[in-house]
């Protein structure tokens, strides 16, 4: 089958990219195979497990259920876009500290779901955390430590914010 090629443009992890793709390429495959950003995982391929979770246009989405051309003009964050060189995001640190990572396959999606949740709701209760990560399956941890990690990250981020505010005042 001859497949129509098309060129799309988007911003991924702060970088502008222009790339040739097809109408039948999933965004997940473009991210992994063409951009070699393999932090994003494929689990079920049907939007049930959340391993392929990314943030697209400020929203949590399953990249296995997005066609590559649908991301034309979008702003995308994958797990590689978190933290800075040599410094992890506070959410990633909290996951390590609480032991919320076992096999690690769900972790990129889980961390991004946590990031989105804490952006929208900086002080979530347990039920809100559960709802925030309800699209992400983990078969190792039983979720307990993941929930602990998100709780810890919420505290750290609030603390960080207060410290920054304090500094501003002192200036």
């Amino acid at each position: 089958m001859s497949t129509h090629k098309l060129t799309i443009e988007f911003i991924i992890n702060g970088q502008k990219r222009k790339i040739e793709t097809t109408p039948f390429t999933r965004l997940l495959d473009l991210i992994r195979d063409d951009l070699h950003l393999t932090g994003t995982k494929e689990g079920c391929g049907k939007g049930e497990c959340g391993a392929c979770t990314i943030i697209m246009n400020h929203q949590l989405v399953a990249s296995c259920l997005v066609l590559a051309p649908q991301a034309d003009g979008a702003e995308i964050i994958t797990i590689e876009g978190l933290g800075e060189k040599g410094k992890l995001d506070p959410i990633q640190e909290a996951f390590i500290e609480t032991g919320a990572v076992q096999c690690g396959f769900c972790t990129p999606g889980m961390v991004l779901a946590a990031k989105k949740l804490l952006e929208e709701n900086p002080h979530p209760n347990i039920e809100e955390i559960k709802r925030g990560i309800s699209g992400n399956l983990c078969r190792c941890t039983g979720y307990k430590k993941i929930i602990e990690a998100i709780n810890l990250a919420a505290k750290r981020l609030t603390q960080q914010l207060e410290e920054e505010k304090g500094k501003e005042k002192n200036v």
Partner: peptide, 25 residues
């Protein structure tokens, strides 16, 4: 195709069967 959350599940292993898309985005 709108959000694709049903369509891409139905066709997840046979996207090649689709002749073309009208994307409403």
């Amino acid at each position: 195709i709108a959000g694709g959350s049903d369509l891409l599940v139905q066709y997840h292993d046979r996207l090649y069967e689709i002749a073309g898309w009208l994307d409403l985005k």
